[in-house]
C-alpha cells in the first residue's frame, strides 16, 4: 500500500501511520486557519455534524468525498423512501428501500467518520428500528386474528375509508420490512466496523465498561479512528 500514500497529499487529513505528533500539529494548524475564516464560517454551531462538540477531534476527509456525499445522500435517502412507499406500483418494496436507506447511512459514515455517525445514530435508534419493525409486522398480522380472522388477513383490518387490503400490505412493507432491514444492516455495519470483542470473557462482562467509557468521554483513542492507534490495536485485527 506504499504506492497509495501519495494520493493522500491532496486531502486535508494526515494519514501517515504512527505520526501522532504531526497529526496534532496539523490539527493545530487547521484550528488556526479556521479562526481566520469569515465570521459565518469560523465557529461551526455546536449541533452541526462537523463541529468539534459532536466530533471530538476535527475529522476531515477528502474534499471530493465530503461535498459529494452531502449532495448525494439526501437524494439517495429520498429514493430509498420512494422505493419503499411506491412498492405497490413499481418495482421495489420494503426490502430494497430499507437496504438503500441503510446504504445512505454507510455513505455518511464513510464521509464524516464512523464515530460521529455513532453519535447521531445511537444504538437505541438502530435497535428500535429492527425491533419496532418486527413488532409492527407481527402486530399488523395479529390484528385480524384478534378480530376472528386469519394471520395477515388484510380485509379485516380496521382501516376506515381507505382500501384495507392495499394499505395493509403497504403498512407491512413500510413499517415492517423496511425498518427491520435498514436497522439490521446498519447494526451489522456498526458491529463489523468495531470488530470482535477480544477483551473480557465475552458477552460484555468486564469489557463493556471499557468500551462504554470510550463512547462517554468522546475519546477516540482506542476506537481505531486514528491510523496510528489502529496499527497499535493489532491484536484486534
Amino acid at each position: 500500500m506504499s504506492d497509495a500514500v501519495d494520493d493522500t497529499d491532496m486531502t486535508d487529513t494526515v494519514t501517515d501511520p504512527g505520526t501522532d505528533d504531526s497529526f496534532d500539529d496539523a490539527a493545530a494548524d487547521r484550528d488556526g486557519s479556521e479562526s481566520e475564516l469569515p465570521p459565518h464560517r469560523a465557529a461551526p454551531r455546536s449541533g452541526r455534524l462537523d463541529s468539534e462538540n459532536r466530533q471530538g477531534t476535527p475529522y476531515t476527509e477528502s474534499q471530493v468525498i465530503m461535498p459529494t456525499v452531502k449532495v448525494i445522500a439526501p437524494f439517495a435517502f429520498t429514493f430509498g423512501l420512494f422505493i419503499t412507499f411506491h412498492g405497490g406500483g413499481s418495482p421495489g418494496g420494503g426490502f430494497q428501500g430499507g437496504a438503500i436507506m441503510a446504504a445512505v447511512v454507510f455513505m455518511i459514515a464513510f464521509a464524516f467518520g464512523i464515530e460521529s455517525t455513532r453519535d447521531w445514530l445511537a444504538n437505541t435508534v438502530v435497535v428500535a428500528l429492527a425491533v419496532g419493525g418486527a413488532l409492527a409486522f407481527a402486530g399488523i398480522g395479529l390484528v385480524p386474528v384478534a378480530l376472528g380472522g386469519a394471520f395477515l388477513q388484510y380485509d379485516l383490518l380496521p382501516i376506515p375509508i381507505l382500501d384495507p387490503v392495499k394499505y395493509g400490505m403497504e403498512g407491512v412493507e413500510i413499517v415492517g420490512i423496511a425498518p427491520i432491514v435498514s436497522g439490521v444492516l446498519m447494526g451489522l455495519f456498526f458491529l463489523l466496523a468495531r470488530g470482535f470483542n477480544s477483551e473480557g470473557d465475552g458477552f460484555g462482562n468486564g469489557s463493556l465498561d471499557e468500551d462504554g467509557s470510550i463512547d462517554e468521554d468522546g475519546s477516540i483513542d482506542e476506537t481505531g479512528t486514528l491510523e496510528g492507534d489502529a496499527a497499535d490495536a493489532g491484536g484486534d485485527r
Binding site: 435497535v127 427491520i180 436497522g183 451489522l188 458491529l191 463489523l192 470482535f196
Partner: peptide
C-alpha cells in the same frame, strides 16, 4: 423471512460478543 433477517442481526451480536450495535 423478516424474522430471519432480525435473527441474523442478533446472531451477529452474539458471534462478535457484543451487547450493543453502535
Amino acid at each position: 423471512e423478516a424474522i430471519v433477517v432480525f435473527a441474523g442481526g442478533i446472531a451477529a451480536l452474539i458471534v462478535l460478543h457484543r451487547e450493543v450495535f453502535a
